[in-house]
Amino acid sequence: MDEVIQQYFDWDAARPYLGDLARGFWVTIQIALLAELIALALGLVLAVLRRAGWVRFLAIAYINFFRAVPALLVLIVMYVSFPFLPIPVIEDLTGFQIGFIGLGLVYAAYIAEVYRAGIESVDRGQTEAARSLGMSHRQTMRLVIVPQAVRRVLPPLMNDFIALTKDVALVSVIAVQDVVGVARDAQAVTFNSTTLTVAVVFYLVFTLPLIWILDRIIAREQRRLGRGEIVSP
């Protein structure tokens, strides 16, 4: 039994790596935030293009491609192929940069779908009112539809951010020293898994509050809409 506990909770084995693990988790957070920025911006562009003219088909193709292909595969393809491309900037991208760009590209597809649901949930009368005032399609989207849509999809957007943060662990496969990469490397030296336990704790400390906040927002929204429990006899 002692050996079982020792395997996961041997603090002496993990102590020398705590600094590296903390730095690794900082890398994780940076990648998550940068990827989220890309995904939020690109996702919104895709969601809006999805409702406009012929470019709609390009937007749909993009969204479906990245929803269908594993993020891990996207990261690996970018990481192994980019250094051989004779394209400035692209050929010099580091693993860290490929990590947040790749995850940003993938999550833009999910987030575009979230925005789309939000845009479609805004009452048609809003568009009609704006257009009847002489506003163009573009002005209507920017000033009337998108602001209302974004507010409505805040909970699912946060949900995707949590999922994205967890998927940052994938970058350990392309030689980025995120918290998972650091923990694995240490485990390979010590044959003890406590560094991985520490990685789990880092994740819990970061994501559980997000999940908690998310639940609060949803609960508040439900109250605002006056949806209580249905009374049973």
Binding site: G125, Q126, E128, R151
Partner: peptide, 12 residues
């Protein structure tokens, strides 16, 4: 100008 049955003010 157009006015609708359901007002359609911008709630945000």
């Amino acid at each position: 100008g157009m006015v609708f049955q359901s007002f359609n003010l911008f709630p945000h």
